[in-house]
Amino acid sequence: MAISNLIGPVEQMALANQPVKGLYFVVAGAPQSLSVTLISYVRKLRIAMTMEKGFMDPNTFKSCIEYAFEAISKAALSSPAPPKS
């Protein structure tokens, strides 16, 4: 498994005078069975996941990821704000 992150642009980009609504990246041809890449674009986190065919049941994987994201979200919302320095 590989996890990678990349800090992206904080201002919206345009390509051929068309605004870019989202930006993702994945590493193609990597030897990992599971890859998770993260990028921020205009201060919004974008997550892309790739999985080797037959590595795991896609529905089970989706269910596990949804559960994990909900648990992380609940924990983040219930934790106290950090003190201001």
Rank of each mutant, 00 (worst) to 15 (best):
Y41K: 00
L6R: 09
N5R: 07
E11T: 15
A16T: 00
L15H: 05
V20L: 09
M13P: 04
S33T: 10
M49H: 02
P83K: 10
K44M: 05
V20D: 04
S33P: 09
V27S: 06
S4Y: 02
R46K: 10
G22A: 13
V42G: 04
S79T: 11
P19S: 06
S78E: 12
R43W: 03
V27Q: 10
E52P: 02
L15K: 04
V42H: 05
N17H: 05
T37N: 15
P80W: 01
S35M: 08
G8F: 07
I7K: 13
E52V: 02
A30K: 01
S63Q: 10
I47G: 00
F55Q: 09
L23T: 08
K62S: 15
P9W: 13
E11N: 12
M13W: 15
Q12Y: 05
S4K: 03
I3W: 03
N5G: 05
L45E: 04
A30R: 01
N5L: 01
I3L: 02
D57P: 05
I39E: 06
P58A: 09
S78Y: 08
P80D: 11
S35P: 00
K21R: 15
E11H: 08
C64R: 07
V10T: 14
D57K: 09
M56D: 00
I72T: 11
F61R: 01
A28F: 12
A76K: 07
